[in-house]
């Protein structure tokens, strides 16, 4: 049986036994290489389920849609390791109750999809631990290294050019499961901290605020990067911040559902390299 068929059977079981009220998975999208979210409520609806190497989107943002979990019933969801880390963060930030989530874990290497053993987020802690160990390598990116070689002026020019395309559509924000605030700072206009116009100042204000709000929280799922209609390489900023937080505070986002947010907590032995 293919992994897709195995998981179809599993989804039908979960629904018919009443273990979950819904499973969030993937179905065919508008083009052959795109997938759409699928909300499966009955065993029959599981027929549409697809699970292949195109299922890359992080679906966890749907879990915190208004009211979905408020009846305290369980929901199943297809998650890659980055998705599992996401629900850990959402639980640590009190946005969902992790006990309500049944994880249908999978991973993609090249074209191949493999199943991950486990049912609740906690079952994957060993896997996440190994991700942390590999993180210094995994976060490396030749382009980041190249940018690091530039002097601040040149780097500024690089980002100025990239950001100049930003149309402030906030698709990056909408796509990110961590951007769950009901009112985002950019929506404040008394005072207007973040300039809405698409000029250098406004573009930097938005993208720097975004980088800070996601530092120590971004799991690198790439939702934002793919959502950006003008292809700004947001992943570079996120990965660079993740490197920084890992190096300075030994923090990788989403290790567990009780992890303290890195920017709101402190340890006595935190490095204080930023204090002059």
């Amino acid at each position: 049986m293919t992994i897709q068929e195995q998981y179809k059977t599993r989804v039908r079981e979960l629904l018919s036994s009443g273990t979950v009220k819904m499973v969030i998975g993937y179905k065919a999208g508008t083009t052959a290489d795109r997938r759409r979210p699928l909300f499966i409520r009955t065993p029959e609806e599981a027929d549409q389920l697809l699970l292949d190497s195109a299922c890359i989107a992080n679906l966890s943002g749907y879990l915190i849609a208004e009211g979905l979990l408020s009846d305290e019933k369980r929901v199943g969801i297809f998650l890659k390791p980055d998705g599992i880390r996401t629900i850990n963060i959402l639980a640590a930030e009190a946005q969902l109750n992790i006990e309500q989530i049944i994880v249908l874990g999978f991973d993609i290497t090249g074209q191949e999809v493999t199943a991950l053993q486990g049912e609740t987020a906690g079952d994957f802690s060993a896997l996440i631990e190994s991700i942390k160990e590999g993180a210094p390598e995994a976060l490396k990116n030749p382009l980041i290294d190249q940018l690091e070689q530039l002097n601040p002026k040149e780097r500024f020019a690089y980002w100025q050019a990239e950001f100049s395309r930003c149309i402030k559509c906030y698709a990056c924000r909408q796509a990110c499961p961590m951007c769950y605030c009901r009112r985002c700072i950019v929506d404040c206009n008394q005072p207007q901290w973040v300039n809405t116009s698409s000029h250098t100042l406004g573009n930097f204000e938005w993208n720097i605020v975004r980088a800070f709000h996601l530092s120590g929280r971004c799991v690198g799922c790439g939702n934002c990067d793919r959502a950006c209609p003008v292809n700004i390489p947001l992943r570079l900023i996120n990965a660079r911040m993740a490197q920084e937080v890992l190096g300075s505070f030994d923090h990788l986002a989403g290790m567990s559902d009780t992890q303290e947010p890195v920017l709101a907590s402190f340890k006595k032995d935190d490095s204080e390299t930023f204090i002059l």
Binding site: C181, P261, A264
Partner: peptide, 12 residues
Amino acid sequence: TTCAGCWGCVLA
């Protein structure tokens, strides 16, 4: 009205 209940401030 706008608080997201993330408890970051509680900890901070």
